[in-house]
Nucleic acid binder design. Structure first.
Length: 674
DNA sequence: TCGCTATGCGCC
DNA sequence: AGGGCGCATAGCGA
């Protein structure tokens, strides 16, 4: 159960052939240590194991709280506060016992990590001496994932779900239980920014832990009863898919990815030096609000004294959205604003941009990821499987779905991608589906014009370019798309028009209007076309692909009328009451892609165990033995193509033949450009 | 000190 | 009416 941003306490319930609860496992962890540094302090009883590792702030906080609250429950806590852990050997017995059972857990992946991690400082020991044990083959079900499949519209939290289903009444569960729990635990747990579940005395948390364990068991029984019913075959199938995916993600997270902390920290140091040089020349605090004040703030204060601000007029299109604190909206200070200021020769604009990019690179990558890397030199992320509405995977902790492309790296620093390393004798490879979303859109919309282009070997953007600008190409003597795409001999405007077409493809399928498409074109080509011209192009695009237009309309109509749309594998994307439905088509595409890549991931993990490191929406990163790296990567490439083509193959008309939209995949060593 | 919001920006 | 995420920072108010 997630008990706050990245802070977790969870219980696993163990049962044996339907008998009563046998054992509780209480797992505690800190955000930064959930995975690569085990963090068990198990306050099962009052047997001392030595003092806890207590940060000063917590020590102070608890001491203060104890002094001010001399009631009985606190006395119990105070007695247990010093050293409440069980002997290490008991941890080992617990793990061995769990390994022999069938386990149900709410968010099983977390419990698996805790069990496998072992006790702090004992990671390399056998369980009897505090080491971990892999319990993944003992886990039989994950009640949170199953609930996500059974009821995607509601919270999958254990207590809200139980209350909703009327479970646990005999245990005293009611709508207020969760709040009561938060109230009771808060003084011990500390602030949300640094919660310490391991500092909560067992007598304080015991009742809640026991309740969670019992609820998990009740929920599991309830769900399994439902899934036994033939009417729930669909849900059963998808619950099994998610469960299999959970185990794959668990093994990926355990593995982590090699990261060169030494080089990363060297870059961090270099970045800080560069930042200091720049900052010393800036006449304002180098923050976004500071820059806003300097560039756009009044030049004089109320008394007519000069403020040192420049008093630049805000750009009309660069005002933040009105909010409570700023009903008029504020002058926006983003990259583009700064660029414009710099172009006007406004002093310090360029320097501030430089400072901001250096600081961002350090705090997001060079410093942050080095700090997060484990003692084994591996950097680990945490997948969230049941939180994204579209069905995509999300990752937290290290945001390894947003590893910067090389061109994003500030001048003078090393690309972050080059800091990822393979273990000895291995190589990193990435395999990705090319233009997945447009191929999916082609299948979903049954778009014959785009299909024809794919079948003749065109990529989607060249295809759109050809169809949108065909008249002009033909008039100028370029009668085929193949000729027009030749770099040297092609139509002089081919590349410009292809960019325009690409932005139309992506933008319109995402639900963008002409204004946004115009901005995108400007961003990628540097040419700011008149809105009227862009509107014309959007119309050209719509004329070239009538089935896409029909699909966009049909999807949003369905989402408006029914409140949901269906993905390619039958799963449903629900729309909440106030969610705009213009994005419905995009959600079908994005969600269907996510469902398909999940199946690929599980299959690749099964066929090539131990190799998968990351999955980034349409790509899979692998760590492969050097001797056969390319061969395996090619096989994975084939798997992606096969799975995507199969997922989207269907008859395009009633009783007609099955139409297969061709998919393509790229396969290359990690870090190599296209 | 802590929780919250606003802002900006990385990825697909 | 461009979709889906997560993270860092700043600033404000309790």
């Amino acid at each position: 159960m997630d008990a706050g941003p990245g802070k977790i306490v969870s219980q696993a319930v163990c049962f044996d052939q339907g008998q009563d609860v046998l054992t509780l496992l209480r797992a505690v962890a800190k955000k930064t240590e959930t995975i690569d540094e085990s963090q068990f302090d198990i306050p099962f009883g009052g047997l001392p194991l030595g003092p806890k590792d207590l940060p000063l702030r917590h020590s102070k906080r608890i001491r203060k709280w104890l002094d001010n609250s001399p009631d009985e429950s606190v006395g119990v806590g105070a007695a247990l506060f010093q050293a409440p852990n069980l002997p290490v050997a008991q941890w080992g017995r617990l793990l061995r016992q769990l390994a022999r059972m069938r386990l149900a857990a709410h968010n099983a992946k977390f419990d698996l990590h805790m069990s496998a991690g072992g006790l702090r400082g004992c990671e390399d020991q056998p369980p009897e001496q505090g080491g971990g044990l892999d319990l993944s083959s003992s886990v039989a079900s994950d009640t949170q994932l199953t609930q996500f499949v059974l009821d995607p519209q509601n919270s999958t939290g254990l207590k809200p779900t139980s209350v909703r289903l009327g479970l646990g009444k005999e245990l005293g569960l009611n709508a207020g239980t969760e709040d009561a729990e938060q109230q009771a635990l808060k003084p011990w747990k500390g602030p949300q920014t640094d919660p310490r579940f391991d500092l909560i005395p067992w007598p304080v948390i015991r009742v809640y832990a026991a309740l969670d364990a019992a609820l998990t068991l009740l929920l599991d029984e309830h769900q399994q009863g439902q899934l036994d019913d033939e009417a729930f075959q669909f849900e059963l199938r998808h619950a099994r898919r998610e469960f299999a995916l959970m185990k794959t993600l668990y093994s990926m997270e355990r593995r982590g990815i090699g990261y060169n902390t030494v080089a990363s920290l060297a870059q961090a140091t270099k970045a800080r030096e560069l930042m200091e040089q720049v900052a010393s020349q800036l006449p304002f605090k180098p923050t976004y609000p500071g820059a806003q004040k300097y560039f756009f703030g009044p030049t004089e204060d109320q008394d007519g004294k000069p403020t040192g601000n420049l008093g630049h007029l805000p750009y009309d299109d660069k005002i933040t959205k009105p909010s409570k604190s700023h009903p008029q909206g504020q002058p926006q200070v983003d990259e583009e604003t700064i660029e414009r200021l710099a172009a006007e020769g406004v002093p310090h604009a360029q320097q501030f941009a430089r400072f901001a990019e250096l600081q961002s690179a350090n705090s997001k990558w060079f410093q942050a990821w080095a700090d997060m890397t484990g003692k084994d030199g591996r950097l680990r992320t945490n997948h969230k499987q049941a939180s994204v509405v579209s069905g995509r995977l999300a990752v937290s902790r290290a945001q390894l779905q947003a590893i910067p492309q090389n061109y994003q790296i500030p001048d003078g620093l090393t690309p972050v991608r080059s800091l990822f390393t393979a273990k000895p004798g291995h190589q990193l490879w990435e395999v990705d589906v090319s233009q997945a979303e447009i191929r999916i859109a082609t299948a979903v919309a049954r778009c014959q014009p785009m299909l024809d282009q794919f079948n003749s070997g065109q990529d989607s953007h060249s295809a759109a370019c050809w169809l949108m600008f065909r008249d002009e190409f033909e008039r100028d003597g370029f009668p085929t798309v193949a000729l027009a795409s030749q770099k040297d001999e092609g139509h002089p405007k081919w590349h410009e028009y292809r960019q325009v077409s690409k932005r139309c493809n992506l933008g319109i399928l995402y639900g963008a209007g002409a204004g946004t498409v115009r901005g995108e074109i400007a961003k990628f080509t540097g040419i700011d076309y008149p809105l009227k011209q862009v509107r014309q192009w959007v119309d050209d695009w719509r004329r070239a692909f009538p089935p896409f237009v029909r699909m966009l309309d049909a999807a949003s109509r369905k989402a408006t009328q029914d409140g949901w749309v269906r993905l390619t594998n039958g799963r449903v994307r629900w729309f909440s009451a106030y969610e705009p439905t213009h994005k419905a088509a995009n959600q079908i595409i994005q969600g269907s892609q996510a469902e398909t890549i999940k199946d690929c991931l599980v299959r690749v993990d099964r066929e090539f165990p131990g190799t998968v490191l990351l999955c980034i929406h349409d790509s899979i990163v692998l760590e492969l033995p050097a001797s056969e790296a390319e061969a395996v990567a090619r096989k994975v490439q084939d798997i992606l193509i096969e799975e995507f083509e199969r997922a989207f193959a269907k008859p395009w008309e009633r009783g007609g033949p099955v139409v297969i939209v061709p998919f393509a995949a790229d396969c290359k060593p990690w870090g190599e450009p296209e």
